[in-house]
Nucleic acid binder design. Structure first.
Length: 506
RNA sequence: GGCCCCAUGGUGUAACCGGCUAACACGCAGCCCUCUCAAGGCUGAGAGCGCGGGUUCGAGUCCCGCUGGGGCUACCA
């Protein structure tokens, strides 16, 4: 499979750096470990991964843990697990390393420090001693006067002596970027087209927090430059961060990467997907019994479509071959659980019984009584019976539990029906006679047996079948009766039917 | 409030640089198949492309305005 090189030059705007061209594609997914992998994040990761694989580039994973308060190590693992579950692999990142590590921002302080010193030296940063209270008051005042809410630059002009004095006095401070005035900040977004802002709309953004840690916007830029990121693919909620970051690229004298802001994933009310819309983290879908490949396939189609959009079931390699950013849509997409579920069922139907059994094992193991004496071939057969009935793996728990523990109660509606046909118990006992004598307990012969039995009895075939089904499973709906009987085997079938005959309507 | 993004059936999308009775899938309804449940097959309802103006022989596709939805407005990422 050959993929084209990323189409190169874009018309370059008046300001800003020049994008690297025709160098190998390098993209990254940069989650912060403050929670589990969210479906929005998962799709961003997926698009980056697909983009990298399509162009035979490099996919980097970087952990953005500069928020000491909220970051937790356990979440880093959770996110990695989520990505692995989806089948994504990264070429550089935590646990695999790479030439541009470390891949945890908390371990890259020397990088930030070097950049800070340079910028400080060049007079591009300044110390700001404003406290949270001061800033809050300032914003409140601005809100009342209905003017733009942004930092008014009151610490911009502090002279060196005062700065040193206040630092010596132990005042805490942040470092802010001196924002240029009346400059265009523009870029050609791959998915949104040309986007432009002016520097006056921007703030003197904080680059270093009072705890000494770099802020998100600063760390991202330093790292993306260091890691030679060529394409920044992220959610469109980052659009407004982009001009700030571009200012940083300029201050650092670095070329701009390409930017591609992909639309958000929304809940039914068209607001960004959140917990109140239902499951939002990828592990929850795993627990609900979704297959990772189906989930990934569904996610890929959320905001993107292949050239031939009539094909929706796409393998990993087909996604690699097909995925390009120009086919990403520009508006948000509602996460549709029904369609995901449909797609999951499509995947299940495509598995061989043996494969499906392997996927089902963790769930089957939770069923009381499992394996209930069923041997491997019977289990494979059982998986085959549910291949076209399961929508999610966890459904096996409630659909097939009776295979492993004989029923003790029988569906009320089923009993009513059994009563209605009259003489059910006698019928069952006569059938039992025949079954005991059946030479072969296999699907075809069993069906032939029951058919001729029904005929001999002057009964409707269906009535006999329903009666047996109820006796074997306690239910009115199961896979085909004779397939079920073959899976259960003669002994279990006879035992269950005998037991049922004892309580069955006469 | 300010700035920015977006707008094709209920949902996800398609419709190449303007030329169709607006297509595919999910979901929904009905029918068929059938031992039940599924699966499968067939048929159907559902948008005239948010609204209003332009441009054009011709606009879902281009332009303007409006409306609606969303995002951002932190020493969070």
């Amino acid at each position: 499979m050959r993929y084209p090189a990323f189409p190169a030059a874009r018309p370059q705007g008046s300001q800003g750096g020049t994008p690297r061209m025709s160098t190998p594609v390098r993209v990254r997914f940069a989650p912060s470990p403050t929670g589990h992998l969210h479906v929005g994040g998962a799709r961003t990761a997926l698009f980056n991964w697909l983009f990298a694989r399509h162009y035979r580039g490099v996919f980097v994973l970087r952990i953005e843990d500069t928020d000491l308060e909220r970051s937790q190590e356990a979440y880093t693992k959770a996110i990695l697990d989520g990505l692995r579950w989806l089948g994504l692999d990264w070429d550089e990142g935590p646990d695999v390393g790479g030439p541009h590590g470390p891949y945890f921002q908390s371990q890259r302080e020397d990088r930030y420090r070097a950049a800070i010193e340079r910028l400080l030296h060049e007079g591009k940063l300044y110390h700001c001693f404003c406290t949270a209270e001061t800033l809050e008051a300032m914003r409140k005042d601005q809100a009342e006067r209905k003017v733009d809410i942004k930092y008014d630059g009151r610490c911009r002009a502090l002279d060196r002596a005062e700065v040193e004095r206040r630092i010596a006095a132990g005042e805490t401070f942040v470092l802010r970027l001196r924002r240029p005035e009346r400059e265009w900040v523009e870029w050609d977004d791959i998915t949104k087209g040309r986007l432009s802002f002016t520097s006056d709309q921007l703030d003197d953004l904080v680059v270093v927090k009072s705890d000494g840690m770099p802020t998100y916007n600063f760390a991202v830029v330093v790292d993306d430059i260091d890691m030679r990121i060529t394409h920044v693919i992220r959610g469109e909620d980052h659009i407004s961060n982009t001009p700030k970051q571009i200012l940083l690229y300029r201050a650092l004298g670095a070329p701009l990467p390409w930017f591609a802001h992909i639309p958000m994933i929304l809940g039914k009310d068209r607001a960004r997907l959140s917990k109140r819309h239902g499951a939002t983290s990828v592990v929850e879908y795993e627990k609900m019994g979704y297959d990772p490949e189906a989930f990934r396939n569904y996610l890929a189609l959320l905001g993107w479509a292949p050239t031939d959009h009539t094909r929706e079931i796409l393998s990993r390699d087909e996604l690699f071959a097909e995925f390009t950013l120009d086919r990403v849509s520009s508006h948000g997409a509602i996460f549709d659980l029904d369609k995901l579920t449909w797609m999951n069922a499509e995947y299940i139907k495509r598995f061989s019984p043996a494969t499906l059994l392997a996927k089902l094992r963790p769930w089957l193991a939770q069923i009381p009584g499992f394996p209930g004496g069923l041997d491997e071939p019977a289990l494979v057969k059982l998986a085959g019976l549910y291949r076209e009935r399961l929508k999610t793996y966890n459904e096996i728990l409630t659909m097939a539990d009776w295979f492993f523990t004989a029923p003790t109660t029988y569906d009320a509606k089923g009993l009513e029906k059994a009563a209605k046909i009259g003489g059910a118990r006698g019928l069952l006992n006569r059938l039992l006679e025949r079954l005991r004598a059946a030479p072969e307990f296999a699907e075809g012969p069993l069906e032939a047996l029951v058919r001729s039995f029904a005929e001999a009895e002057g009964r409707k075939f269906g009535d006999v079948v329903h009666l047996c089904r109820l006796g074997l499973s306690g239910r009115t709906a199961t896979p085909g009766l004779f397939e079920v009987m073959a899976v259960l085997g003669r002994d279990r079938c006879l035992a269950r039917l005998e037991r049922f005959a004892a309580v069955c309507p006469t």
